[in-house]
Computed example of a mutant assay.
Amino acid sequence: MCYEGLYVTAGAFGTRRTAEKFLARRACPALSLHSLPKAATWESAIPAPPGSRVVTWPGTGHFLHLERPAAFAALLTQWLMESLHDGAGTLPSAERERS
């Protein structure tokens, strides 16, 4: 099912060329966490909104947030605070009140 969803079905974005086009359309800042430097380098070359960040944690696997939960929480918190401080992640007032 995963292979089908990534590569076979209409609109699938598993190939690099399609993924690059998809990722380049991001409208919000993104925090991307990779275990492999090569993957991080590839994503860093794709245009991203201001406030986006690509991080590499070598020696981890597919579940970086489970392997290093405290470091993941610290990284996410830091990035969110920076995004809000820089204005890149500013929420409309109605959404800010619900957060």
Rank of each mutant, 00 (worst) to 15 (best):
A88F: 15
G11W: 07
T9E: 15
W79Y: 08
G59Y: 00
S99V: 15
E95Q: 14
T90R: 15
A94H: 12
A74D: 14
L91Y: 03
A48Y: 06
P69E: 02
P92T: 04
G87R: 07
R16D: 09
F72T: 06
L31V: 01
S99W: 11
F72I: 00
L91F: 04
C2P: 11
L91M: 09
F22K: 15
W57S: 03
Y3W: 13
G51I: 05
G5E: 13
A10L: 02
A45L: 06
M81F: 11
A10P: 04
K38W: 10
A88N: 15
R98E: 11
S44A: 10
R26M: 05
V55D: 04
P69G: 02
G89Q: 12
F13S: 00
H34N: 02
A45E: 10
T41S: 08
S93R: 10
V54Y: 10
E4N: 11
S52C: 06
E95T: 05
V8N: 09
A73N: 15
L84P: 00
Y7S: 10
P29T: 08
A30P: 00
E82K: 05
T41F: 07
A70G: 08
W57C: 02
E97H: 09
R26I: 01
H62F: 00
E97T: 08
F13E: 05
A94D: 13
A39D: 07
H34Y: 09
T56V: 13
C28K: 15
E95W: 11
T56Y: 03
M1R: 14
P37S: 02
A39R: 07
H34T: 00
E82V: 01
L33F: 10
R68Q: 12
L36F: 12
M1V: 14
C28P: 02
